[in-house]
Design a protein around this nucleic acid. Structure first.
Length: 933
RNA sequence: GCCGGGGUGAUGGAACUGGUAGACGUGCCGGACUCAAAAUCCGGUGCCGCAAGGCGUGGGGGUUCGAGUCCCCCCCCCGGCACCA
C-alpha cells in the first residue's frame, strides 16, 4: 500500500470504477422486477447554470450525496438525479454584456459545471439529467398550461409591473435600485398590463392543511408558509357613500379581522387607484390631490419597498357613512394602501392599530378608544367611584355615544365646585392611560361601543357581524393573504406561453399537435422591450380554430414554473408521450429534498401547488411532493476592502490577503499579499460577487481533492446553519484524511489483514484486555451515534467528530497481540464504512486494502454490537446546590439509597455541607445527585 | 415595516429529552524529531485567582433542586416579502 495519501490519483480511480460498474444508475421497477429494496429518492435543488459551481452548490450536493450513499448502505434503491434550471434573467444580462445569445451562454455553462460536479464524486444518475430550456422539457409545461387554461385554473387579468420609461421595458424587482431603473437610472413607474395567472388561491385551503401532514419538514418552514397563505377570519364591511360629498350612491368595501373595533373607526383610507380616489381627483378642483395620487403611482411594486416607505396621505374631501351609526367618516388616500391587496381600502382604527395610529398622529385625525385593557378598566372603575363621590352619576349611554375621553372632558367642563384631590388624581390617571403613546392592539373588553360594551372579542365579532348582515352592510368572511400567481414575463429567455390571440376567437390555447412552441435560440436581447414581440417570424401565425391570421403570445413564463415540476420529470426524463409516465408513481414522493432556506416560501409552495395540479390531471399520486425537507444554511466568508479616493470600497478577495494575529491568535490586521500594505477587515457575509469574498471550490478540489472539500463542508457546521469558510479548516480536514490513510497503511503493513474481531470467530470476549474491551465499547457507541447522526439527526459534523475521537482512541491503543490486531481491524473497517458517505473516494480505496477482493459499493452500513455495549460501572455527578462538586464511579445497578449514601460520604460534599443537614436530595438515575442545603 | 431564524472560549462548533458548558477541529503555548525549517507526533489551553475558590452561553428579569436549553422584555446579525434564483 502507498505510504502517503494522494487524493488526485485515488479519486480518479474511484470515479472510473463507479463509472465502470454503473454504480449510481437508479433502476426503474421494470429494470429490476425482483428487487425488494425500498426506493429512496434523494433530491437536491438543481442549480441555475450561472457559469461555475459556487460553495453553496458544493455544500448542497455534498449533503445530498452523503444521504444518498448512507441510504444505499442501509439497503435502499437510491435515485439521485441532477439537472439545470436553465431559463432566467442572468442569461439575458450576460447577453447584454457580452453580445452572446442566452442559449449559447447557458449551454456552455452547463457543460463546464457538469464537469465540476463530476469531479466532486457525486453518486448521480446522469441518465436522468433534465435541462429546462430544452424543448423536450418545456413542451410538457406548455401542454399542462393549455390543460389548465381550459379548466379555468389559468386566467388573464391586469396587474402592476415596474416600468422603465426610458428603456421602455418591464423591470424585475432586483433591477430597480433606489426606485430607479438599473441601466437607465430613470425613476420607475407602476404600469398595469394584462397577465396570465395561476389560480393558486383555489388551492389555498389544501396548501394550508397539507402542511399538517408534513412531519418531515422543519417547523420554521411550515410556519412561514402558513403565515404566507395567511388564512384569517374577519368581516367584510360596507361603508355607504355620503351622497352630499360623493354625489353618487354606492358602498366602500373593506375587509377587517377586527370588526370588534368598528365603533373606533375615525376615517377610511383608500389606494391611489381606488374608484373613490379617482372620483375625488376628477370631480374636485384640487390639483394637490391629483398630483398626490400621481406620486403614489411612482416607485416600484416590491412589498418590502412599499412597507418601508414613509406613510403619507391626503384628505379626498369625500365622506362615507359608518354602517352602524351613520356618522360621516372622511375618506383619505394613503400610499400604504395597495389596490392589489384585498379591497384596496381599509377602515382605520387609530386607537387599536399601529399603522393607523401612526397615520392619525401625523395628520391629526381623531383617536377613539373602544377596546379597554384590564389596566384601563380598573382605572375606569376607580374614576366612576370618584365621580360618584363628587355627586356625579356617570351617564353610560352618553359614554357609549361619544367615547370615554370626550365624555370625561365634558364632565370636567361642567364641574361647578372645586373637585377633590383624589378625584383629580383618578382623572389624571385615567386620562394618562387613555393617551398612551402606542395603540392597544390586543384583544380586550369593548367600551364606548353602545350595546357591545363589556363584550369580549368573539361576542363582539358575532354581534357586530350579525348587525351588519341585518342591515345588508356586511358579513363574516374568511380570507387568505395568498394572491394568485402571475406568471407572464415580458422577457425572452423563458418558456413561451402557448396561447394564440385571434381577433375572432379570442385567446386560444395552442393545440397539442402544435406543441412545443419553440423559443428561437439565436437571439441576442438588447435590453429594450421583449425581443419576441419584435419578431414577426415568431409571433405571426394562424388561429387553430378559425384559420384566420392571428398573433402568438410573446410573453414567457416565470422560471418558477419550470422548477415546480422538475422533480417529477426526473422519474421519466425520456418520456416523449407525456409530462411523466408510470415511473413517476414509483419514485414519487421525493424522500428527501435538500436546498437553501431562501426557497422556504415561494419555490416550495409553487412546487406543492404543481404537485396537486398534476395529481388532479392523474399524472402523479399522493398529495405532497416532498416527504422530508432539509434547508441548508448559506456559505459565508470574511470580506476585505480598501477605499479609493472617492471613498468607494474596493473589495479584495480573501485569497489575496494575509491576516496577522496577536500571540493568542486574535486577528490584529490584514495586508494585501501583493504589496504588503494594510487593508480593512469587513463583516463576514454570504459569498457574493459584489463583495468579492467568494472562494472558488475548484481551487480547493485541485489543491486537496474532492474528499477534503466534502469533509470540510460537512464538518464545519451542521447543514441547517450557515457555514463559515476557513482555509485553516480545510487544512485540518486534509490532515485528518492523511491520518486515516496512515492508520490503515500502518495496520495492513504490520501484518496481513485478518478478519475483524466481531466477524472472525477466532477470538472471544474473554481474550480481550481491559483496554481492548474499552476500545470496542467506544467503537460500538460510535457506530450507534453515527448511524443516528446520519439517519435521524442529519448532523454530519458530529458524526465526523465521533470518528475523529475513535481514531484518536485507536492511536492510543498500542497492544501488539493477534487479538488486538483483529480489534484494530474491526475499528478501521468501521471507520472506513462510517466515513464512506462523506469521503467516498478515500474509503473506496481503503476498503480494498482492508478487505482485498471486496468492493465498498456492496457494503452495508455497520451495526452496533449489543454485546460490546454492556457496561457494569458508570460515572455519576455530584452537585451541591446545583454546582458540580465531584463525581463517583458506581455499579450500574446501584439504587437510590446507595447513591445518596455514597454521595453524602464524598469528601467534597462533606466539606461543602460542613455539618449542615441536607434539605433535599435529587437523584437522577444514571446521571447525577444534587444535594440541596 | 411584516413573517421566520440566529447570537456559546482567540476561532468553526459540541452539549439531541431541563441534568458535568466548551466534545471534535482550527489557532496559540510547550515538548519530541531535525544542522535548521516544513511535515509529523506528544502534552497544555474559557476568564479571574498563588491557592481555596469565584465568574462564565448577546443584555435584563423570571420559573426550577438545577437553565445554553423553558417564559417575559430589550439589543444586534441573517433569510424571505410574490419579476434574482
Amino acid at each position: 500500500m502507498q505510504p502517503n495519501y494522494h487524493p488526485a490519483s485515488i479519486e480518479q480511480q474511484a470515479q472510473k470504477h463507479w463509472e465502470t460498474r454503473q454504480a449510481f444508475r437508479a433502476p426503474d421497477p421494470s429494470d429490476d422486477p425482483q428487487s425488494d429494496k425500498p426506493k429512496y429518492y434523494c433530491l437536491s435543488m438543481f442549480p441555475y447554470p450561472s457559469g461555475k459551481l459556487h460553495m453553496g452548490h458544493v455544500r448542497n450536493y455534498t449533503i445530498g450525496d452523503v444521504l444518498s450513499r448512507y441510504h444505499r448502505m442501509k439497503g435502499c434503491n437510491v435515485m439521485q438525479p441532477m439537472g439545470w434550471d436553465a431559463f432566467g434573467l442572468p442569461a439575458e444580462n450576460a447577453a447584454l454584456a457580452n453580445n452572446v445569445p442566452p442559449a449559447a451562454w447557458t449551454y456552455s455553462n452547463i457543460e463546464y459545471m457538469k464537469k465540476q460536479l463530476k469531479s466532486l464524486g457525486l453518486g448521480i444518475d446522469w441518465a436522468r439529467e433534465v435541462t429546462t430550456c430544452k424543448p423536450d422539457y418545456y413542451r410538457w409545461e406548455q401542454w399542462l398550461f393549455t390543460r389548465l387554461f381550459e379548466k379555468g385554473i389559468i386566467y388573464k387579468k391586469t396587474a402592476s409591473v415596474n416600468w422603465d420609461p426610458v428603456d421602455n421595458t418591464v423591470l424585475a424587482n432586483e433591477q430597480v435600485i433606489d426606485g430607479c431603473g438599473w441601466r437607465s437610472g430613470a425613476p420607475v413607474e407602476k404600469r398595469d398590463i394584462p397577465m396570465y395567472f395561476f389560480r393558486i388561491t383555489g388551492y389555498a385551503e389544501e396548501l394550508l392543511t397539507g402542511l399538517d401532514t408534513l412531519d418531515g419538514w422543519p417547523e420554521q418552514v411550515k410556519t412561514m408558509q402558513r403565515n404566507w397563505i395567511g388564512k384569517s377570519h374577519g368581516c367584510e364591511i360596507h361603508f355607504p357613500y355620503d351622497m352630499g360629498s360623493v354625489g353618487a350612491a354606492g358602498v366602500l368595501k373593506v375587509y377587517t379581522t377586527r370588526p370588534d373595533t368598528l365603533m373606533g373607526v375615525t376615517y377610511v383610507a383608500v389606494a391611489a387607484e381606488h374608484p373613490l380616489a379617482v372620483r375625488a381627483a376628477a370631480t374636485t378642483e384640487n390639483p394637490e390631490l391629483s398630483s398626490f395620487i400621481e406620486a403614489c403611482k411612482r416607485g416600484g411594486t416590491a412589498e418590502a419597498e412599499v412597507a418601508a416607505m414613509e406613510k403619507r396621505g391626503m384628505d379626498t374631501g369625500l365622506f362615507v357613512k359608518h354602517p352602524l351609526t351613520g356618522e360621516k367618516l372622511p375618506v383619505w388616500v394613503a400610499n400604504y394602501v395597495l389596490m392589489g391587496y384585498g379591497e384596496g381600502a381599509v377602515m382605520a382604527v387609530p386607537a387599536h392599530d399601529e399603522r393607523d395610529f401612526e397615520f392619525a398622529d401625523k395628520y391629526g385625525l381623531p383617536v377613539k378608544h373602544v377596546i379597554a385593557s384590564q389596566e384601563l378598566l380598573s382605572k375606569w372603575e376607580k374614576l366612576t367611584f370618584s365621580l360618584e363621590a363628587e355627586g356625579i352619576e356617570p351617564d353610560h349611554e352618553e359614554i357609549g355615544r361619544s367615547g370615554m375621553f370626550i365624555y370625561l372632558n365634558d364632565v370636567l367642563a361642567d364641574l361647578t365646585a372645586a373637585p377633590s384631590d383624589a378625584f383629580i388624581a383618578s382623572v389624571n390617571e385615567f386620562a394618562k392611560q387613555l393617551q398612551l403613546e402606542s395603540p392597544n392592539t390586543e384583544y380586550g373588553t369593548l367600551v364606548s361601543s353602545g350595546k357591545c360594551n363589556g363584550m369580549g372579542f368573539q361576542e363582539a365579532f358575532d354581534t357586530i357581524s350579525a348587525d351588519l348582515q341585518a342591515k345588508g352592510l356586511g358579513q363574516k368572511r374568511t380570507q387568505f393573504r395568498l394572491r394568485d400567481w402571475g406568471i407572464s414575463r415580458q422577457r425572452y429567455w423563458g418558456c413561451p406561453i402557448p396561447i394564440i390571440h385571434c381577433p375572432v376567437c379570442g385567446d386560444v390555447p395552442v393545440p397539442d399537435e402544435q406543441l412545443p412552441v419553440k423559443l428561437p435560440e439565436n437571439v441576442v436581447p438588447d435590453g429594450a422591450g421583449s425581443p419576441l414581440a419584435k419578431m414577426p417570424e415568431f409571433y405571426m401565425t394562424i388561429c387553430p380554430q378559425c384559420g384566420k391570421a392571428a398573433k402568438r403570445e410573446t410573453d414567457t413564463m416565470d422560471t418558477f414554473v419550470e422548477s415546480s415540476w422538475y422533480y417529477a420529470r426526473y422519474a421519466s426524463p425520456d418520456c416523449t408521450t407525456g409530462m411523466v409516465d408510470e415511473r413517476a408513481k414509483h419514485w414519487l414522493p421525493v424522500n428527501q429534498y435538500i436546498g437553501g432556506i431562501e426557497h422556504a416560501i415561494l419555490h416550495l409552495l409553487y412546487a406543492r401547488f404543481f404537485h396537486k395540479l398534476m395529481r388532479d390531471e392523474g399524472l402523479v399520486q399522493g398529495d405532497e411532493p416532498f416527504t422530508n425537507l432539509l434547508t441548508q444554511g448559506m456559505v459565508v466568508a470574511p470580506t476585505f476592502f480598501r477605499e479609493d479616493a472617492h471613498g468607494r470600497k474596493q473589495w479584495i478577495n480573501p485569497s489575496e490577503v494575509e491576516v496577522s494575529t496577536d500571540e493568542r491568535g486574535r486577528p490584529t490586521g490584514a495586508t494585501l499579499k501583493a504589496d504588503g500594505l494594510p487593508v480593512h477587515i469587513g463583516a463576514t457575509e454570504k459569498m457574493a460577487k459584489s463583495k468579492n469574498n467568494g472562494v472558488d471550490p475548484q481551487a480547493i478540489i485541485d489543491a486537496y481533492g474532492a474528499d477534503t472539500a466534502r469533509l470540510f463542508m460537512m464538518f464545519a457546521s451542521p447543514p441547517e446553519q450557515s457555514l463559515e469558510w476557513s482555509d485553516a479548516g480545510v487544512e485540518g480536514a486534509f490532515r485528518f484524511l492523511k491520518r486515516v490513510w496512515k492508520a490503515v497503511h500502518d495496520h495492513v503493513e504490520k501484518s496481513p489483514p485478518s478478519p475483524p474481531f466481531a466477524k472472525g470467530g477466532e477470538f472471544a470476549s474473554e481474550d480481550l484486555s481491559a483496554a481492548a474491551k474499552a476500545l470496542r465499547l467506544q467503537l460500538h457507541q460510535t457506530i450507534a451515534k453515527v448511524d443516528d447522526d446520519m439517519g435521524r439527526r442529519k448532523t454530519f459534523n458530529t458524526a465526523i467528530a465521533a470518528n475523529m475521537e475513535l481514531l484518536n482512541a485507536l492511536a492510543k491503543f498500542d497492544e501488539r497481540t493477534p487479538v488486538a490486531h483483529s480489534v484494530a481491524q474491526e475499528v478501521l473497517e468501521a471507520i472506513a464504512l462510517m466515513l464512506n458517505p462523506i469521503v467516498p473516494h478515500l474509503c473506496q480505496t481503503l476498503w480494498a486494502e482492508l478487505r482485498p477482493g471486496s468492493d465498498m459499493l456492496d457494503q452495508p452500513f455497520p451495526e452496533a454490537d449489543p454485546g460490546a455495549l454492556v457496561q457494569d460501572e458508570i460515572e455519576i455527578v455530584i452537585q451541591v446546590n446545583g454546582k458540580l462538586r465531584g463525581n463517583l464511579t458506581v455499579a450500574k445497578s446501584a439504587d437510590k439509597a446507595a447513591l445518596e449514601h455514597l454521595a453524602l460520604a464524598h469528601p467534597a460534599v462533606e466539606k461543602q455541607l460542613a455539618g449542615a443537614v441536607p434539605k433535599k436530595i435529587v437523584v437522577v438515575p444514571g446521571r447525577l445527585i444534587n444535594i440541596v442545603v
